[in-house]
């Protein structure tokens, strides 16, 4: 196959979908798309929309080439067909996706640490990831996107692990957003495989051979902020969050922050130096920007906090029940467990922020339903 690893991704908002793929040859890459009702015998029409790559170059394996492109001006509630490739390499088979409603009730799916390649036996882990993902898609009602909270792979430059992470069909039919984990950071492979919208050039950036970059997007009427928690420059992350919320918070009904290293986990990493640094820096930024929900991974255990305040303290009277009514400046934090089952960490009881923990070493996912009135996070395990 001349074209490999195609990934459908979120764009800056629901009118845009990003794509990335690897190609045998360099240059000439493009994405072509059209509404499904314009397909002719299953093929895209000659006058299908097309867009050239916005970024491309030699892949980290020094053999293939990475390609990024975007489909733009998409209409809501519409079935689209697309393919990526080039004249030289040929094009992928036509794939389909559906755009979401505009401002109605929506939902998205969240996954912790697929970490394909960890825990011994790549095949079992890849199978576990595929099973959780397909179960989640079957459980949800037309999820608008998939949100993976970092450590997609175990070894940052391992292309086989990326191929396994990207193998499920949903990779090509439901947009996804990713977070950069500590296992993803030490290679440019992450930046090459994923075409993220609105990546900051000045906040959370990677290095010459490492990946990084804080970024944001709006989907389901929610402003999603995504920071590279491998980067220890907390002032830069805070500036990014302050600036994006000031500029775009008014366009969204809720604000969600995602990053890899959970600051309120109930497992082994809770006392790590990098986690403690984040735990000091994030709560005041979350409070002053009225971030509603924070989602993280890293500790391979599921928990949720009480409502938390800007000093990192549980809000008095917060019960961690089925309903949480927040005042401005209060935030709920979720830590997601492994979605593949590749590994789990030991439960640490008695931490101040623990509202509820589930620590039975089962892969799980979280379904978040969005309406004007509520963000409802329902978590399921996949035995």
């Amino acid at each position: 196959e001349a074209i490999t690893d195609p990934v459908l991704q979120v764009g800056a908002d629901s009118t845009t979908r990003n794509l990335s793929w690897m190609s045998e040859n360099s240059g000439g890459g493009e994405v072509r798309w059209a509404p499904v009702n314009e397909l002719e015998g299953g093929e895209l029409p000659a006058d299908a929309a097309a867009a050239e790559t916005t970024d491309s170059g030699l892949a980290t394996d020094l053999k293939r080439h990475f390609n990024h492109a975007s489909m733009t001006d998409l209409e809501p509630d519409t079935d689209y067909a697309y393919q990526v490739g080039s004249d030289e390499d040929g094009f992928t088979e036509v794939q389909q996706f559906t755009t979401g409603s505009s401002g109605g009730d929506d939902e998205f799916l969240v996954f912790g640490d697929p970490q394909v390649g960890a825990g011994g036996g790549d095949l079992g882990v890849a199978t576990g990831w595929e099973r959780t993902l397909s179960t989640a898609v079957a459980t949800a009602d037309d999820p608008s996107f998939l949100y993976s909270l970092g450590d997609q792979v175990n070894s940052a430059g391992n292309q086989e692990q990326y191929a396994q992470y990207l193998a499920p069909e949903a990779t090509r039919t439901i947009p996804q957003a990713t977070t950069i984990g500590n296992h993803d950071v030490s290679s440019k492979a992450y930046e090459q495989h994923f075409n993220r919208p609105n990546v900051s050039q000045d906040h959370g950036g990677g290095g010459i051979i490492t990946s990084g970059g804080d970024y944001w997007f709006i989907e389901d009427g929610v402003l999603f902020l995504n920071i590279n928690s491998n980067s220890s420059d907390m002032d830069a992350h805070a500036e990014f969050i302050d600036e994006v919320v000031a500029e775009h918070g008014g366009q969204a009904r809720w604000t969600v922050l995602g990053f890899h290293h959970s600051i309120y986990s109930t497992a082994t990493h809770w006392n790590d130096l990098d986690v403690k640094r984040l735990r000091k820096a994030i709560p005041p930024v979350a409070a002053r920007n009225d971030i509603d929900l924070v989602v993280s991974g890293h500790d391979h255990i599921f928990n949720r906090t009480f409502l938390m305040d800007g000093e990192g303290k549980p809000v008095e009277g917060s019960e961690a029940g089925a309903d949480e009514a927040k005042e401005d400046g209060q935030t709920l934090y979720l830590t997601l467990t492994s979605s593949s089952g590749s590994k789990f960490y030991d439960y640490v009881p008695g931490l101040d922020w623990e509202g509820k923990s589930v620590h039975n070493d089962m892969p799980a996912f979280t379904r978040v339903r969005v309406s004007d009135e509520a963000l409802r996070a329902t978590t399921y395990e996949v035995p």
């Binding site: 179960t135 949720r304 309903d323 509820k356 399921y380």
Partner: peptide
């Protein structure tokens, strides 16, 4: 089969 382990609805007070 997925089995529910948590459910929380976050609203504004």
């Amino acid at each position: 089969t997925a089995e529910q382990i948590d459910d929380v609805e976050l609203r504004r007070a």
